[in-house]
Design a protein around this nucleic acid. Structure first.
Lengths: 212, 212
DNA sequence: CTCTCAGACTTACGGGCGTTAGCTTATGTC
DNA sequence: GACATAAGCTAACGCCCGTAAGTCTGAGAG
């Protein structure tokens, strides 16, 4: 793994009112570091600055500390995940069952395509030790709600159309379904090669959505 | 969180053939650091040495590098988990269904009781970046097999007794069941407060084991 | 053309880390 | 009691980290 930067040009300074642009570049740099295959520890304040082609202290006007960068990355990726799932949902043809599988498989594919991102989104090291940082509990609680809401909705459609067995607690069923997806997604994002049959994803979905 | 060591006595040196004792003390120190609530990063070579009351280089005769300590900790905890599950299984009265719930709930309880341990056992940061360390793939592959085998066995008994719907792939079903358990266990080990209904665990078990 | 200040940069401090090389000391043997 | 050696220590190297203090500079207003 080469960490060389090779910035030929020293990076043009932003225009006067566009200082905020750097914020996005910092997030992009952190994402790039993650995708390069290292673990979360590779994303330090200094390494991000190197990747972005700026000096380390130049980050401070935009982020209070390193966990804040992580939070911003996660927020951006959560939005990206939500968008991906919505698109998968919209493109699904063939009724509620197809929609459910499209959304769930979209989730699993996301985790497999971007394991490092998935790891920091759900279960990153920065979450538990948030004390004495600038991150609030509200920041964390609001993290995946949009994507989860979509799952609840699609599962609800399955119940309404009689494809899935009804239950007195749709929300709870959706939580259980997500937990199953998360178990598989996380495991795929952590180990090199996941043991078990290839259709484990479909089995999880079928069983946890109570499909008929 | 105070990291002070306050070693009043400078620790008595081990007897002549008992140098190996220190190995266990090192593992115990690493475990203690984990349980103190910090994340995995708190377990450094030097911090472990401090906790064990020895000098940092004294670790080298026992472990090649820091990941090796982690591996030893995980191996010990995997054995502890297996023992816990076996005990839960043995103490379960009331047939196959009770045995299955005892084992599964034992698993979930373990994760909730020792979140930091669970995190490094399944999905610790040290696993993906194992290159250029002294850890082999075989070390990692052999990690949870005993506990998983127990799960397969108990699930098989459920099928044999007609409590669970039969399938052509018992192993695959057990993988799916474990993935569901893992999703819940991991989430509980990562976030402070898990949303969703209290009986989510039972729902997962019932659905994924295909209980009648 | 000049001046201002947003948007950066340079330098530096203190601290933790992993690891190497060489030294000390207690323990059990003879 | 002397001595060999296992068990563990001290000192030191180089690296990377987060962060504070002060400095430069170029875009745009007048």
């Amino acid at each position: 793994m080469v960490t060389a930067v090779t910035n030929t040009e020293p990076r043009r300074r932003n225009r006067r009112g566009e200082g905020g642009k750097l914020r996005d570049e910092i997030i992009a740099a952190a994402l790039a570091l993650l995708d390069e295959g290292g673990d979360e520890r590779a994303v330090t304040l200094r390494s991000v600055a190197r990747k972005a082609g700026i000096a380390a202290p130049s980050i401070y006007p935009h982020f209070a500390d390193q966990p804040s960068i992580m939070l911003a990355v996660v927020q951006r990726e959560m939005d990206a995940l939500t968008a991906t799932l919505r698109e998968a949902d919209d493109n699904a043809a063939g009724g509620a069952r197809a929609r459910l599988f499209a959304v769930c498989n979209g989730y699993l594919d996301f985790a497999q395509a971007h394991p490092q991102r998935y790891r920091i989104m759900f279960g990153g090291l920065w979450t538990p030790s948030v004390e004495d940082t600038s991150i609030t509990d509200a920041d964390l609680d609001s993290l995946g709600v949009e994507a989860f809401t979509l799952l609840v909705e699609v599962l609800g459609v399955c119940v309404d159309e009689g494809i899935a067995h009804a239950s007195d607690d749709l929300y709870g069923d959706a939580v259980a379904l997500w937990l199953g997806l998360h178990g598989l997604a996380h495991q795929r994002a952590v180990v090199r090669k996941m043991p078990g049959p290839a259709d484990v994803g479909d089995r999880l979905i079928t069983a946890l959505a109570h499909l008929k």
